[in-house]
């Protein structure tokens, strides 16, 4: 006998314990952070004074680079969302296709980077991408492709793209596994019917797989979005925000402000991120809702 009857509608107050935990451990710290963003809280003085919107005005005044960091965060989120989703779907479709052999081994190989520490990935790629001694450039040079060799992490125009590529390499396996689970959930009847109608692989993908994967893709998008906006580790490990400030994002700026002892500015940036993540997640979940209801 199951403890819960999933067909029964339980009273709303059953949600109170979970809601209470969420409010105490997730929502309240966020709100408190927003409260402190209106103060001058810092490590150099004990007293905390109300300063109104001063910290917010500072961020958007243009005198500092904070807006650039916010844009970098958005760029990182948008691009990793696209690359991880596209490659995740491609790998998932390939590795569920009956013609591909050793599927489990290949899935494992693609998934392994996901379980590696960001610091290890950072150190390994810093070494691989060194323009003089690194594997990538030396490989390109030995293959006669010297023209493609670059300063991957120290060129301000390339550094963010390189970080995005490494992050995609690390995270694509996780999304692939989710999409594979989604593909396994699609009834084979659809494909058999399409086969009888003479549909090609691409037609089956476009008219069956992708439409039926829509809820999965939307979930994956929420995951990518919340991860991308909160990104810190991979940038800290690979470039530490450099060269110069070319790869700084909101959370590296938060870290930097906290380390300077300017807690109020750190919480202001965190507050902006908090509101941003909440609004975007809410928006996407609203989009998702009709799918779930249906």
């Amino acid at each position: 006998m199951c403890l819960l009857n999933f067909n029964k509608t339980y009273p709303t107050y059953y949600a109170i314990p979970a809601l209470l935990l969420f409010v105490i451990f997730f929502f309240l710290p966020g709100v408190l952070g927003i409260f402190y963003s209106f103060t001058d809280w810092n490590s150099l003085r004990a007293e905390v004074n109300f300063v109104g919107l001063k910290n917010y005005l500072k961020i958007f005044s243009g005198q500092y680079d904070f807006v650039k960091y916010i844009l970098n965060t958005v760029r990182f989120t948008g691009l990793t969302m696209i690359t991880k989703t596209v490659f995740g779907i491609i790998f998932a479709m390939l590795l569920t296709h009956k013609l591909v052999k050793f599927q489990n081994i290949q899935r494992m190989v693609i998934f392994i980077p996901q379980v590696m520490s960001f610091l290890i990935v950072g150190l390994v790629f810093k070494s691989l991408l060194n323009p003089v001694t690194g594997f990538f450039n030396n490989f390109l040079k030995s293959a006669g492709l010297s023209v493609l060799a670059r300063n991957w992490l120290s060129d301000s125009n390339l550094a963010l793209s390189t970080v995005i590529a490494v992050d995609t390499w690390k995270g694509v396996g996780y999304l692939m596994i989710i999409v594979i689970a989604g593909i396994h959930g699609i009834s084979s009847d659809y494909y058999e019917a399409a086969q009888i109608d003479g549909a090609s692989f691409l037609q089956k993908t476009w008219h069956i797989t992708l439409p039926l994967l829509k809820p999965v893709i939307l979930n994956v998008t929420v995951l990518n979005l919340t991860y991308g906006l909160r990104v810190f580790d991979i940038i800290y490990a690979l470039t530490n925000g450099g060269p110069g400030h070319a790869t700084e994002v909101i959370n590296t700026a938060v870290y930097s402000e906290f380390s300077k002892g300017n807690y109020a500015m750190g919480t202001t940036l965190s507050g902006i991120l908090f509101v941003f993540v909440m609004l975007l997640s809410f928006f996407i979940l609203r989009v998702l809702e009709p799918e779930e209801k249906s």
Partner: peptide, 13 residues
């Protein structure tokens, strides 16, 4: 921070 600024100068930003 000055170090990062100098890096930014070296890469032209």
């Amino acid at each position: 921070d000055i170090g990062k600024d100098i890096d930014a100068m070296y890469v032209g930003i």
